[in-house]
Write a protein that binds this DNA or RNA. Structure first.
Lengths: 189, 189
DNA sequence: CTCGGATGTCTAGCGGTGCTAGAATTTCGT
DNA sequence: ACGAAATTCTAGCACCGCTAGACATCCGAG
């Protein structure tokens, strides 16, 4: 019957409602304040409903992480596509750092909280998509090295800049200069 | 009286006992399993005793983080001092990555769990000491840039390599090649 | 239109957490 | 030996993630 379809659609809507609510709460008050109880109250359902959608709290965090990685991938690709020739690397790197500062809770979910996300060879397409724009800008600088290794190293450099800055480990003011150093070190052959 | 001194000494001993126990438990079974109850049982005292030494669980994690950063600083300095001329950067970077893989729980405490550690200008001497060997190896490569900015950028690159590898985000096998890429990018002027 | 089964949702509760007030004990100088 | 002071413990609060079982709702067959 058509009712079946309607039910599935409503379930899907409620699932995105949960993910969205979790994300907003995390971004507003931090992940520790995103509890099952508060989340249930927020979406106006009882706690067990959440467990009919997700295996547990961790799975909800993972869902936000997944969504966030997807958006990060889009941001990076957009930055690369929109950059002038020769400035793609700088644009992508800047987009990465901007994403980290603009959506700290999502960034945290994606890179320090998420535990159940499958990486490696059998990672879902969404996760691999984030690597593509990075590969596009770093691979041309590979020289004699493995392009993937260069991409991973470049990604790690940008990522390290993002996390250390986020945690207050670096002088807040000089982020642009640090990025400039990295870009120069990677681009000068 | 002399009893006063003995008490303070015993208190200090118990405090290091707590930190050591927390560290061992974290390294053995992960930080989530380091609960106040288990920690109290381990040191054979009741829970409130822990609160007479530390403001809360977070302060204990911070103490482990502090201790770990001190040891990391020593490792880096030892690697730098023991390296052949010209190979200091590689040695320090390798020591950093080794520390992350050899003491994952301490590394986690220092860089993702610790929240109450004072950084910036008024950071304690121990924390600044970790920066010194990094500065020693990166500053000579500064060129026209600010030596501190270059150091921070280089540190970030190594750190990113450590955390992404730890979280399974990178192909496990190619860590050496990634490091080689970073070293080359930073050393070629 | 009714009714019985299936589906969905909720109430209530378990064991665990960090943390703390106040009782009980131990220690120590007089 | 005793009373005060310092120390430690018992017991409990509010909250957490999670779940079993009661309850309500919905839907299709007769």
């Amino acid at each position: 019957m058509a009712t079946q379809q309607r039910r599935e659609r409503e379930r899907a809507e409620r699932e995105t409602l949960i993910v969205t609510a979790a994300r907003e709460m995390a971004e507003a008050d931090g992940w520790p304040s995103v509890t099952i109880r508060r989340l249930a109250e927020r979406i106006e359902y009882s706690q067990p409903v959440l467990y009919s959608h997700f295996a547990g709290r961790g799975a909800i965090v993972d869902a936000v992480a997944m969504q966030g990685i997807g958006e990060l991938a889009e941001s990076l690709e957009a930055a690369r596509a929109g950059a002038e020739s020769g400035a793609e690397l700088a644009a992508v790197a800047q987009a990465y750092l901007d994403f980290a500062t603009d959506h700290p809770a999502v960034f945290e979910a994606a890179f320090t909280l998420a535990e159940g996300l499958p990486f490696g060879p059998d990672a879902p397409e969404v996760l691999k998509a984030g690597f593509a724009p990075l590969f596009a800008v770093f691979a041309p600088l590979a020289g004699d090295h493995d392009p993937e290794a260069v991409t991973e190293a470049g990604w790690a450099a940008i990522h390290g800049l993002a996390v250390l800055a986020r945690d207050g480990r670096l002088r807040p003011v000089h982020q642009q200069e640090r990025l400039a150093v990295l870009l120069e070190k990677f681009t000068t052959t």
